[in-house]
Design a protein around this nucleic acid. Structure first.
Length: 570
RNA sequence: GCUCCUGUGGUGUAGUCCGGUUAAGCAUACUGCCCUCUCAAGGCAGUGAUCCCGGGUUCAAAUCCCGGCGGGAGCACCA
């Protein structure tokens, strides 16, 4: 046996055995050797015999003996290996992506306010474009005039700005309607699409039963005639353009899906200029192709539509982008879906889209979640198709770390109890606004009359000693309805329980909104919004709406108004 | 029901394509210690996964093959 090799085997065996109660296994040692010497793979038999001999010797040694052998023979193993630190802020490589050639797109429909689901999609699109030095297009997918509203186009842009997402181009699908008509007519003329005048229910039934209808076999001239009539004569619902797919396909999407339908509602951007509108599949495929998209990323529920997407582009002989999908974002007890959010608002269960209990961008912002925390969170979720209920506490954790250095520390007491302290030898204290970051100091005037939290007060009895933070140590002398105490000294290093306080005279009453979980086991949680009151320092009034505060020993809150804060997280 | 997707610690993921250098890495949560006039942040350490189950291929499988089971989605003239 090669002397060098057997030394190496011995080294691995000793190391592994000493790490695992003195016993190593052939499999492990063999695998490690093969990993670093791929050339030995065709000599497994011999190698395996050698390994087995060596580990037999090693396994007979006690751990102490193994350790001392390592010390003598392989001292380099004793050096602690540095823990590798790779911050996971990048997505996995994109299939078939070439540097400088990647174009992604974020295609929201302007039919609602943006939420964290939009953020996930947009962040992934932007990150991939950035990663490959490519471009990202924001395209409003506005092909249903009954749903789109002007305010939503704006709200989505505002949301993306807030998130810090930059796009290289902005456009609307509705800009290209004429082009899409051309493609539609081309499909009709080449026999790859037809105009169907069956009732909606009939179409649906036929698709279920894999039955073609008579419109499918109408001659081309008449089909073109029908197509023209869609722009004038037919009423909505009387005619649709259908793709000549495969009524027998196992994939129901392929059973002659709708390409165009008539909608007479006024469009947010185009008014009543058009009334024949393309459906999602047709518009998206054409737009992606024309826009030069290389990678079309969408959520998983579209997965079955890939076949149709590619079939349409094949029929049109257009360039095909690569379509990839990722899982939809879901939270435990916090709905992301537009449909559910709308219902909650319509039923009056939550007042608006800025409610801090919901994951709209406005809601998250109002709650005190930072855009960068959202980005980091989304990236930590990865690019995967596995169904997940995302952990909101991870978002909170990222946010806490980011917001900590920006949060002014303030005293606040919940359920105030009076405490009168005598013999304080000074009439004001100066308190630092942050323990580690220089955020200035503030002077708090005191007169011996304080509020402390009921929770802390409950722990006190006559003779108890506490430290009022930044002020001094106090001995409790009386404990009835109100508490009374005596100033002892100002020994900071005391081991006494440290509690926060507020001067009675200058206390500011605020309400604290604590957003809770909206659904518990699918039932609406009537107590999802807890509102409590507290007293804080008058310095609160110097803060701006939107400032983040950490109420000491309570948690992080965002100033929502002169008299109200929203609890961000602990 | 049919079709498709998916299944790694409490949770979210890395690794899976191209089987071996890792008795499964990171984050979060939890526990302990250090730091600290906070139950925050920061530092350090620890607990925690027979990689859904059962077979098979192989010297070797989280990784490949077959068969189950669990979860999700689609089956709109919404996107």
């Amino acid at each position: 046996m090669d002397e060098k090799l057997s030394q190496e085997i011995r080294k691995i065996a000793l190391q592994n055995a000493s790490e695992h109660n003195g016993q190593t296994r052939e499999k492990i040692v063999l695998a490690r050797i093969l990993g670093s010497h791929p050339d030995l793979r065709n000599k497994i038999k011999n190698l395996s015999r050698d390994v087995s001999e060596i580990i037999n010797v090693v396994n007979k040694l006690s751990i102490e003996e193994q350790r001392s052998k390592i010390e003598q023979e392989f001292p380099d193993l004793l050096k602690a290996k540095p823990k590798q630190e790779i911050e996971k802020t990048i997505l996995p490589p994109l299939e078939e992506a070439k540097n400088g050639m990647v174009v992604t797109r974020f295609p929201p429909e302007p039919n609602g306010y943006p939420h964290i689901g939009h953020a996930k999609a947009a962040i992934i699109d932007e990150e991939y474009a950035k990663m490959y030095g490519g471009k990202m297009i924001l395209r409003f997918d506005d092909t249903n005039p009954a749903n789109e509203r002007m305010e939503y186009y704006a709200a989505i842009k505002v949301g993306l700005d807030w998130l810090g997402i930059k796009y290289d181009k902005i456009k609307n699908t509705s800009d290209d309607l004429e082009l899409i008509y051309d493609k539609g007519l081309h499909m009709i003329k080449s026999g790859q699409a037809y105009v169907c005048t069956c009732k909606a229910e009939t179409v649906s039934e036929n698709r279920k039963e894999k039955k073609p209808c008579k419109c499918r076999s109408i001659d081309q001239k008449q089909t073109v005639d029908r197509w023209e009539k869609m722009f004038e004569k037919y009423k909505p619902g009387e005619a649709i353009v259908r793709f000549r797919g495969n009524m027998n396909s196992e994939n129901t999407v392929m059973r002659d899906p709708v390409l165009f339908r008539i909608i007479d509602s006024s469009h947010a951007l185009l008014g009543n200029k058009y009334r024949v509108w393309p459906g999602y599949d047709f518009a998206t495929a054409i737009e992606d192709s024309v826009d030069g998209i290389t990678h079309a990323l969408r959520t998983k529920e579209y997965e079955l539509r890939n076949e149709l997407y590619y079939a349409i582009l094949d029929a049109l002989q257009m360039r095909k982008p690569k379509v990839l999908e990722f899982s939809r974002l879901e939270f435990e007890g916090m709905p992301v879906s537009k449909r559910v959010l709308k219902q909650l608002i319509d039923e009056g269960k939550i007042p608006d889209y800025e409610d801090p209990r919901i994951p709209t961008l406005e809601g998250l912002k109002r709650r005190g979640i930072l855009p960068d925390a959202i980005r980091k969170f989304v990236l930590s979720l990865g690019f995967t198709k596995a169904d997940t209920t995302a952990p909101f506490d991870v978002l909170e954790s990222f946010n806490r770390k980011m917001v900590d250095s920006k949060s002014i520390r303030l005293n606040m007491v919940k359920e105030p109890v009076k405490l009168i302290v005598s013999k304080i030898p000074f009439d004001s204290v100066t308190i630092s606004n942050h323990p580690t970051v220089d955020m200035g100091k503030r002077k708090v005037v005191i007169d011996g009359n304080f509020y402390i939290s009921k929770k802390d007060a409950n722990e006190l009895k006559v003779g108890s000693q506490i430290r009022l933070m930044n002020l001094g140590n106090v001995s409790i002398t009386k404990s009835s309805v109100d508490l009374e105490g005596e100033f002892i000294d100002d020994n900071v290093k005391s081991e006494l329980p440290k509690i926060q306080w507020v001067p009675q005279k200058s206390a500011q009453k605020i309400s604290i909104i604590i957003p809770g979980i909206l659904f518990i086991n699918d039932n609406f949680n009537e107590n999802s919004l807890e509102i409590t009151e507290g007293y804080t320092e008058d310095y609160y009034s110097n803060l701006k709406v939107g400032d983040e505060i950490q109420f000491i020993r309570f948690g992080y809150c965002r100033k929502d108004s002169a008299t109200q804060v929203i609890f961000t997280h602990k």
